[in-house]
Nucleic acid binder design. Structure first.
Length: 311
DNA sequence: TTGTGTTTTATTGCCTCC
DNA sequence: GGAGGCAATAAAACACAA
């Protein structure tokens, strides 16, 4: 096969236009042309005009036939310069586009008919359809990519919003839990003082190990444990069970759910309790609570805890 | 005018189907 | 094994800025 280069010359087009013997031979297009005169004047590289009049000279279109017949390579190359690749005319392309819209695949009969109507080789029509399908596929990929990108951007925006909301809620929970701990610690301090002052002169009956103050304290402990547990479960409900970020998470993870309000702590001395409470507090600096703060808490999250404390 | 990027036409090689 | 489709690629044609 006398193919010249990678695809520039139409000599190879002429000779390779059909791959097998069963389809129409390369010359068919020329014999089939003429049914649509409007296309015959195009600058198509295989139009009848081009075959016979290129650069004002008349020469055979199928150079390679001559080439093979006379075998004079140098003479051929001197006299017969390769034809330039030419684009299809606007009318031809329009016609092909309409045909493509009807059906993007070519049956052999349709290919022959189109080639006949356009004054092209059937092979050219087939190539045009093939390239047209490739173009469509490329555009479709671009569209799909854009759609995916749009979808991704939307999802990412939603995700970022939710992330910010989550962080805010987490901060709120931490703040409120810290307040609760601080208040509880103050309450314990005050109760211990009252206990010391009021019970020192009295002798308690043997076996009655539960004073009034201790009852209150136990109640507080019970309530606080409940609150902390619920706060903790809230955190773990809204996050990963392995969430460890934030000040309070370390506090919550430091032991089991009762470590903060371990009943045994009532056996500790005041100093020990103070030290323990301080060591358990996060390194936040809160405004010091006055006595009145305990009797008049803000009507909010702490209401329940405060009620427990009063009880 | 020229360099450069894009589009179009065409080839090649591989694969699948009948 | 032949026909036809597709991906990759070459190369000409075209568009356009500098």
């Amino acid at each position: 096969m006398a193919s010249v280069g990678g695809g520039g010359s139409n000599f190879s087009v002429s000779l390779q236009s059909q791959r097998g013997p069963s389809t129409s031979p390369p010359l068919d297009a020329f014999f089939l042309t003429g049914s649509s005169p409007s296309f015959l004047g195009s600058r198509s590289m295989v139009s009848f005009e081009d075959v016979h009049q290129v650069n004002g000279s008349t020469r055979p279109f199928f150079r390679s036939f001559d080439h093979e017949e006379n075998g004079d390579d140098e003479l051929d190359e001197y006299f017969y310069q390769p034809e330039k690749k030419r684009r299809l005319s606007v009318d031809q392309v329009r016609f092909l586009e309409k045909s493509y819209e009807v059906e993007n695949k070519l049956e052999p009969e349709r290919k022959i008919q189109l080639a006949k109507d356009l004054g092209l080789q059937p092979r050219q029509v087939a190539i045009w359809f093939q390239n047209r399908r490739a173009r469509w596929k490329t555009k479709q990929l671009e569209k799909d990519y854009e759609a995916l990108q749009t979808s991704y951007n939307g999802l990412k925006a939603d995700y970022d919003t939710l992330l910010k909301e989550k962080d805010k809620l987490k901060a709120d929970v931490n703040l409120l839990t810290d307040k609760l701990l601080l208040r509880e610690d103050k309450g314990n301090l005050e109760l211990s003082d009252k206990e010391t002052l009021s019970q020192e002169p009295q002798k308690k009956p043997i076996g009655d190990s539960t004073s009034e103050g201790e009852v209150s304290k136990v109640s507080i402990v019970a309530c606080k444990q409940e609150d902390i547990s619920s706060a903790k479960s809230d955190i773990f409900d809204s996050d990963s069970p392995h969430y460890t970020d934030g000040v309070h998470s370390s506090l919550l993870e430091a032991g089991d759910s009762s470590y903060v309000f371990e009943p045994d702590q009532s056996d500790l001395s005041q100093d020990e309790e103070d030290n323990l409470s301080e060591s358990l507090l996060p390194p936040y600096v809160f405004p010091k609570l006055e006595d009145g703060d305990y009797s008049d808490p803000p009507a909010s999250f702490e209401d329940h805890a405060f009620w427990c404390w009063s009880y």
